[in-house]
Each structure stands twice: as C-alpha cells, then as structure tokens.
C-alpha cells in the first residue's frame, strides 16, 4: 500500500469532525501551498533541475528554511534517481513522504500530553511576546476539562498590562479556577501559590501562564528558569510538560527561540499558533529535525475549540491532500485539451 493511501486511510479512520476542523483551518495554507506544488507539477512534466529549483522556492516561501530545504531536495534527487522517476506525476507522494521523514528523523514521537495517572500534572506555557500563550491556555483548559479532568490555571504573566484579566476571562469561558496575584508580583511566588492551591483542591491539571519574553533577554530567561525550578521543588517531576507557543508567522528566528527556550526550561512540545492565516510555519520541520521538539498542538482560530492535536502525517496531508486528486484530474483534462 502506498504511503499516500495509508495516510488517507488513517485519516478517514479518525474522527471526521476533527479532521474537518483541521482541514478547514488549513485550507488557506493548503490552497496556496498545494496549488503551488500542483502548479509546479502541471508546468513541469519532467523531473529536472528546473523542477527542483521551483520546488525549492515553494518550500522556502513556506519558511521551511534553507538547510532543511537543501536536505529535502538532496534526498528527493536521490530518491528520484533510485526509483527512476521521470515525470512529475506521483512525485507529490514522494515529497510528502520525505517531509514526514525529515520531521520524524529522530524517531516517531508520541504527541499526547504527559498526563500523570495519579497526582497533579503541571503544564508550563512559555514563549516570546504575542504568540498566543494565554489564548492557547484557555483552549487547552477547555479541552482537558471536556476530557473529564479538573483544571486550574495560574496567572504567571504578572508583567504585561491586562494579562491577568485576559487569563481570568479564559478561565470563566472554560469554567476553571484561576490563581492570581496582583500585577507586578513575583511570578515564582504566583506559581508557588498555585501549586499549593492545586494540591489542596486536588485538581488533575495545573496550567501555568508566563509572561512573553524575547529569548535574548538573559535576565528574563533566568526568571523563567526560576519559575520552572519553583514548580519542580513543590511537585517532584513537575512541570510534566513545557509547551513553547510558536507563531506560525515567525520566520527563521523560531529556530533560535526553540533552542534558547529548550535550554532554559527543557521544552517538551510546541504549540503552533495562528495556523489559520496564510503563514505555513514550515520552520517546525527544522525544529523537530534539529532539536527533537515535537509539535503537540496547532492553533486554528480564536474560538475555544480551535486547538487541535498535531499529527505530522495529517499536517503534510493537509498540505497536499484533496487538491492532489482534484488537480490530477484537471491536469489530465488540460493535457487532453492540448
């Protein structure tokens, strides 16, 4: 069975609604990307140097980054040679296969959250300014709540104006308690309070918000380490998840972000936000490939349900799917016209 069919089967097997939502959110992304790829395939009937050059450009414009693109192209060239592929029909499958390969270069990963069977699970949310940490927490709280967990939030962004209020509103929407102190207080102290409140109330999951910080601010990164340490001191093994929120619009700097935040707080997963725009967030391939940080969720809108688990195959499928078959048919038509 071809990779493509396998993927399709896998997807139709999963919850249709979820797939629908994912696909819907990715429509814009996919439209531009797939149409470009298909456009490419349509224009180049032969797999030659020019074809690879165009493909390289399509990928670069998806923010995949130079190194990864070069790696992919090299692999593709080898594959094309090995399988003796001459025309572009069918090359999409190879492209998507290779993209998933790059993503999974360090082994396939389990994208589910590391939820503790007994005791509290602490999730720490980190990232630069304006990537959507607080919004993601709201969505995540609602999601876990629906799974039957009791959830508590910690308003650890005591710096930005209105950040605490923002989390409180999300807490109300999701129907979960928010532990807070006043603006300007020590975030580590808030975490200490929150962890103890969570213990007392016996909640299942505590999600901790932190202030956005640029990764080159040494002092602020130290502060984040302290927050991490305080949580670990109160509950052994905590935080069980450190999620880095990453804006899909971000370019190559995302790699440095992931690297620095990983050093400071041992990031366990990425939430790729704002994927409902036209940006593609292609840099996650490089992040996963180089730093072995998997994407766990994607943000597809501002609604409370717009957070979906990330599935690399689905992600790639979302970029290539439907359009593929459709375009393939159209392609034939146009060819017949000629």
């Amino acid at each position: 069975m071809s990779f493509f069919k396998k993927m399709k089967e896998k997807i139709t097997g999963t919850n249709e609604a979820v797939t629908g939502k994912f696909k819907e959110g990715l429509t814009k992304t996919r439209d531009s990307f797939t149409s470009k790829v298909n456009d490419l395939v349509a224009r180049f009937r032969e797999v030659d140097e020019e074809f690879f050059e165009e493909l390289e450009e399509v990928l670069l414009q998806a923010d995949v980054g130079f190194e990864t693109v070069m790696e992919l192209i090299d692999q593709l060239k080898a594959e094309v040679k090995r399988k003796n592929i001459k025309d572009t029909a069918g090359i999409q499958t190879v492209i998507s296969e290779k993209l998933v390969d790059i993503y999974n270069a360090q082994g396939e990963s389990d994208n589910s959250l590391n939820i503790q069977e007994d005791g509290i699970t602490v999730i720490l949310m980190v990232g630069v300014n304006g990537v959507g940490k607080t919004t993601t927490i709201g969505k995540l709280a609602s999601r876990l709540q629906k799974e039957g967990k009791t959830v508590m939030l910690a308003a650890g962004d005591t710096f930005r104006a209105g950040a605490i209020e923002q989390l409180v509103v999300w807490g109300e929407r999701a129907g979960v308690e928010v532990i807070r102190q006043s603006e300007g207080s020590d975030p580590a102290a808030v975490m200490f309070d929150a962890v103890n409140a969570a213990k007392k109330r016996g909640v299942d999951v505590l999600i901790c918000d932190t202030a956005g910080r640029l990764q080159n601010k040494v002092n602020l990164m130290n502060e984040l380490q302290k927050v991490h340490r305080v949580i670990g001191r109160e509950i052994e093994g905590a935080p069980h998840e450190v999620l880095l929120a990453l804006d899909a619009t971000t370019g190559q700097n995302a790699l440095i972000q992931a690297e620095t935040f990983k050093e400071a707080t041992d990031v366990t997963g990425i939430v790729l936000t704002k994927l409902d725009g036209t940006a593609k967030g292609g840099i996650v391939l490089a992040i996963r490939n180089k730093l072995n940080i998997p994407v766990k969720f994607v943000g597809l809108g501002e609604g409370i349900d717009d957070l979906q688990p990330f599935d690399p195959e689905k992600y790639v499928y979302g970029l290539f799917a439907d359009g593929l078959e459709l375009e393939a048919a159209e392609e034939q038509d146009t060819e017949e016209d000629k």
Binding site: L60, Q61, A62, D63, V128, G130, D247, T249, T250, G251, Q252, N253, A254, G277, T278, A279, K280, I283
Partner: peptide, 12 residues
C-alpha cells in the same frame, strides 16, 4: 508588524 515575521510578511 512583528520583526520576526517570515516569508508571509509580504502577504500581510
């Protein structure tokens, strides 16, 4: 505009 924006900056 966020200075970290990637290729999508032109579309935006």
């Amino acid at each position: 505009v966020d200075a970290m924006t990637g290729q999508d900056a032109v579309n935006v």
